[in-house]
Amino acid sequence: MANDPIHQFVINEIVPINIAGMNFSFTNSSLFMVATAVGAAAFLYLTTSSRGLIPSRLQSISEMSYEFIANMLRDAAGTHGMKFFPLVFSLFMFVLVANLFGMFPYFFTVTSHIIVTFVLAMLVILTVVVYGFYKHGFGFLKLFVPHGVPGILVPLVVAIEVISFLSRPISLSVRLFANMLAGHITLKVFAGFVTSLSAMGAVGIAGSVLPLAMTVALTGLEFLVAFLQAYVFAVLTCMYLNDAIHPGH
């Protein structure tokens, strides 16, 4: 592979599909989306197939992720929020598995593309807006008018709240995308140092120990980030859903 930190994000068409002048090709990104969905679904499905009263280790992982997200959602949005549990759980698992798949060398990281994270973020925000208006009608707009604000300040506060609400899909998507992108580039740059230094003879090989150690440490960090960003995405989703369910706060 080329010693180019950006190369890993390039999309290649596997099955070119063009409809109405738009490119709907099945690409390496699509392939890893399929792998993510199939991998996560298969893991959850197969590990729970025995329905063990005493769970095996793998079944424990599935159960723990279930209870982890369920508790997170219940804490953030209350019991009314549990109707969104499948959505939050799917988002968390999809993002987590996509991030973790990205950690394999030569694998494509689905979440390192802004459009993917943006679509996921818009899915969350549209769910919040649609459900908020469906459930509370125009009462949903109380979300932008916090309690106990002096009359003069209301227009200013409302403006701030609206801007903060509109920036949510951007911050949600950019946070995940930028973390994955920056992490993978950093990893690749340090790994690249190892190969280019080793090509410079004995001194270079000795010198390449440092970036190699850095690469190993960064790999560990990236696994943490992969989990953490999926967690953050899920937590923020829960908090935004709470706004849709209880806009008065």
Binding site: F9, N23, M33, H113, L120
Partner: peptide
Amino acid sequence: PPFEPTYFPSQILWLAITF
């Protein structure tokens, strides 16, 4: 590449299908 709009429709479509 991550800002490459050529593949935006493809990524949206396949993300919608898989997710």
